[in-house]
Simulated scan of single mutants.
Amino acid sequence: MVTLYGMRDSGNCYKPRLLLHKLGRPFRHVEVNALDGSTRRQEFLALNANGRVPLLEIEDGRRIAESNAILLYLAEGTQFIPANVYERGLVYQWLFFEQYSHEPYVAVRRALMRFPERQKDATPERLAQTLKLGTDALAVMDKQLGATPFMAGTTLSVADIALYAYTYDAHQYGFELEQFPAVSAWLQRVEADPGHVPEDWVPTEEA
C-alpha cells in the first residue's frame, strides 16, 4: 500500500487523494501540516528535503514529491492519461498551465484569505494582483472548455483533476465564476464523474 503525506486543507494534496479514490487504489494518509511547521521537522525533511506536501511513498520506500508529478505517476497506464502522444501532450500543457498560470494566483489568493497565518501577506496590492491574474487564468480555461468538455479533450484526465482542486471553491475567494459558464458546467461534469470525493476526504484506517 502506498502512503500519502499531506494536508486535508490543501488543494495540491487533494489532487492525488481524488485520483487514488477514482482508481480504487488503497492508500494510507499521514497528516503533515505546513501551517504548524511539521513539514520542517527533521523526520519529514528526511523524507522530502524540500519540506513540502504532498509526498507519495510507494511500497518499496521510494518517494515522489510535487502534486502533478504524483498524478502522472499514479495515472500511468490508466484512462486518466491518453495513449495518443498528441493528446498526452495536451494533458501536460494544462498541467504546466495549472502550475504557472493558475495555482500561483487562484490558490495563493485562497491561502491569503483562508489561513490566519497568511493574512499578514494579504496586502491590497497582492490581493488585487491575484484576483486579476487568477481571473485571466479562468478566462483561458473558459475558452478551452467552450470547445471541449474537458481540459484536454473529450475525456476527464489528470489535467482536470489538477485544475479542479483550486477552481471548485474559487468563488469563495472573490472569483466570479458566473462570468465563466463553461468553467461552471465543467465543474459539474468533474463532480459527476465516478469516484468523486470532497477535498476533506481521507481513507479510513481499514482502507
Results as ranks from 00 to 15, higher is better:
Ala122Asp: 09
Gly146Val: 04
Met7His: 04
Tyr164Asn: 08
Ala69Leu: 08
Ser101Asp: 12
Leu131Asp: 05
Leu23Val: 07
Asp169Cys: 11
Thr167Val: 10
Ala152Ser: 07
Thr39Trp: 11
Ile70Leu: 01
Gly146Ala: 12
Tyr164Lys: 01
Gln42His: 11
Thr78Ala: 00
Val53Tyr: 06
Arg109His: 05
Ala34Lys: 07
Glu59Lys: 07
Tyr173Ile: 08
Glu59Asn: 00
Leu131Gln: 14
Leu71Glu: 02
Val53Leu: 11
Ala162Gln: 06
Asn50Arg: 14
Asn48Gly: 10
Pro82Glu: 02
Ile81Thr: 05
Thr154Gly: 12
Ala34Trp: 12
Tyr100Phe: 14
Pro124His: 02
Leu74Ala: 07
Glu178Leu: 14
Arg40Lys: 15
Phe80Val: 09
Asp9Ser: 12
Phe175Glu: 09
Leu55Met: 03
Arg88Met: 03
Gln99Ala: 15
Cys13Pro: 05
Pro54Ile: 04
Ala69Met: 04
Glu191His: 11
Asp200Asn: 13
Ile81Ala: 02
Pro149Tyr: 12
Arg109Glu: 01
Arg8Trp: 01
Gln119Phe: 02
Arg28Thr: 15
Leu138Cys: 07
Gly24Ala: 01
Arg88Ile: 08
Glu76Ile: 03
Ala139Ser: 15
Leu56Arg: 07
Ala207Gln: 07
Lys22Asp: 03
Arg110Asn: 14
Asp160Lys: 00
Phe96Tyr: 12
Gly61Cys: 05
Ser184Ala: 15
Val140Cys: 11
Leu19Tyr: 05
Tyr164Cys: 03
